[in-house]
């Protein structure tokens, strides 16, 4: 046993006033639903109002900063001609192809990396290095190799999502507790069964999270690709509008880009919550 050296120090510590734990700004304290909805409404309404006010105040040049109403008006006009829908669809189709392909390849590779240390040793150095090369830096190369058409855009979206999604999938897989894997072996599972019946189901919500994060990145990359060289799509529509100085149309397209992005995110979030009900 340890021997106590001296008498205990005197009980004379200074006291501080108690922390603020509750209230609207208490850390991790729930706010009443009414307050929550108000805050959420304000989060949209205040910037919108500011935009409207600004569009009236900043009026040095005609249509320099169109307000939200003008943007919506221009959007309705573009939608009426069917042009907006065509553009939105060609952008979405590119994401579905490029990002879809990236998911299809990166998920199995991520499972391989996360499950087998040998797979990790084989892939991590390369993938870990390549992910720090910004996908947009590949655009010139892709145009030289694949031309200005669809393949170069699909390839860019693939590159933008592939490396990150591989590493994030591997991370999700590595979060499977070892005890769960061990216990499965003692219940008679073979290696393939452990992968299929234990690792994949456990990691699935995490994998969808990773897809959600990378889908957002893909969505912004597709617009970049279309701004640079394209004959259709929402990015292309922005460039066209710029050429004719139709600033209200640029804003209309921006709103559409935001709304589609939000929809993608929402769909993936719902999927994740469905799949991960057990979490």
């Amino acid at each position: 046993m340890t021997v106590v050296a001296e008498k205990a120090p005197p009980r004379s510590l200074p006291r501080r006033r108690p922390p603020r734990v509750r209230g609207l700004w208490g850390i991790r304290t729930a706010v009443p639903p009414g307050v929550r909805w108000t805050l959420m409404a304000l989060s949209v309404a205040v910037p919108l109002a500011a935009w409207q006010v600004l569009s009236v105040v900043v009026d040095g040049r005609p249509d320099y900063l169109p307000g939200p109403f003008e943007a919506v008006e221009a959007g309705i006009e573009m939608a009426r001609s069917g042009q907006l829908l065509t553009d939105a669809w060609s952008t979405v189709a590119r994401v579905l192809q490029g990002f879809g392909l990236a998911v299809l390849v990166s998920v199995p590779l991520g499972i391989l990396m996360g499950s087998f240390p040998a797979g990790q040793a084989l892939l991590e150095p390369l993938v870990g290095l390549l992910r720090y090369l910004p996908a947009s830096a590949f655009i010139p190369l892709l145009i030289i190799w694949l031309g200005l058409g669809e393949p170069s855009k699909v390839a860019l979206l693939f590159l933008a999502a592939f490396f990150f999604n591989t590493l994030m999938t591997a991370d999700a897989v590595r979060r499977v507790p070892l005890s769960l894997i061990d216990v499965s072996y003692t219940l008679g599972a073979r290696r393939g069964e452990v992968l299929r019946k234990v690792i994949v189901p456990y990691a699935l919500p995490g994998m969808i999270d990773s897809i959600r994060v990378n889908a957002a990145a893909s969505w912004s990359f597709v617009v970049v690709a279309e701004l640079i060289a394209s004959e259709s799509g929402l990015g292309y529509r922005i460039v066209r509008a710029q050429r004719f100085n139709q600033i209200d149309r640029i804003f209309a397209v921006l709103v559409v880009i935001a709304l589609i992005g939000l929809t993608i995110d929402l769909l993936l979030r719902i999927t994740r919550d469905r799949v991960g009900r057990w979490v």
Binding site: S179, L180, V183, G188, Y202, W278, V279
Partner: peptide, 20 residues
């Protein structure tokens, strides 16, 4: 020589499958 169902194992934290 390896794990198998003839030797069932129960850990302290159970290690039940949370999604099942």
């Amino acid at each position: 020589t390896g794990p198998g169902p003839d030797r069932g194992l129960v850990f302290q934290e159970g290690a039940v499958y949370p999604w099942r």
